[in-house]
Nucleic acid binder design. Structure first.
Lengths: 123, 123
DNA sequence: ATCCATACTTACTCCGATGTATGTACTTAC
DNA sequence: GTAAGTACATACATCGGAGTAAGTATGGAT
């Protein structure tokens, strides 16, 4: 069968198509599937967390990567940052409804991997 | 509340826990969520494909990255490689049942991103 | 004789993802 | 006075993901 007209690159990019290298969806995908993006999304499913709480929950993140990844996900509209002008600083992060939807799907993948790990060939 | 004993690092790694930095599940996760890993898994959902067919379907991959990512996913038991001793070479790749399960979840995520792209803040 | 197609591998290179270390501003605790 | 906690920013170094180009082996087409 032939390729339908709606498969043209421009159309696919407007709809959102990860197969189109320059589609913005690739950016979001990159953020969401990044090492720390995955863990932050899942970590926040339990509810709102402060920066340092999240840092403890997502063991192994550096402050640098945590801050950076949080900004990316915030820019994508997947989480919100609320800061309170007190001292010491108090900043809270929580998923948006959109972020919750993304997190559910990411967690479905990681849960599956964790479950099936024994079936997967040893590295 | 305290951390239960089953949350000890060693236990979490045996079960498979992406939050444990040295758990093998992190390796699999890395392969599956890599730029080309994602696209290859989805690309193969349509059925068996040859190397060059896959290369055309997953637009933008270099031969180098395609070969390398295929080897990773094969090592994880997510796809199988069948080669026929003919000339010119003929090699087929297809998902294993395990790979199909993974691909479904990966595609659920990418489908969601494609759908919700308009809702996501512009970069 | 030369080119093309196939499925890679290898060498070289580049850039972005990530880690480390340090700084900041303020307060509480010792 | 000095250390610790908080939420970052910034500079520097590193490492691996990723692209490019070329090579390999073979046979058929031109």
């Amino acid at each position: 069968m032939d390729v339908p007209a709606s498969n043209r690159l421009a159309d696919r990019m407007q709809r959102g198509d990860v197969f189109a290298p320059r589609c913005p969806s690739r950016e979001v995908l990159k953020h969401v599937t990044s090492t720390w993006g995955v863990l932050i999304l899942i970590g926040l499913r339990g509810g709102t967390l402060r920066f340092s709480e999240l840092r403890r929950k997502v063991a192994g993140v550096s402050e640098r990567m945590l801050a950076q990844t949080l900004q990316q996900l915030e820019g994508d509209g997947l989480l919100v940052r609320r800061s309170y002008p007190v001292v010491p600083p108090h900043v809270e992060y929580s998923l948006t409804p959109l972020g919750e939807e993304a997190a559910v799907r990411v967690e479905a993948l990681t849960d599956w991997i964790e479950d099936r790990l024994p079936s997967l060939v040893k590295t």
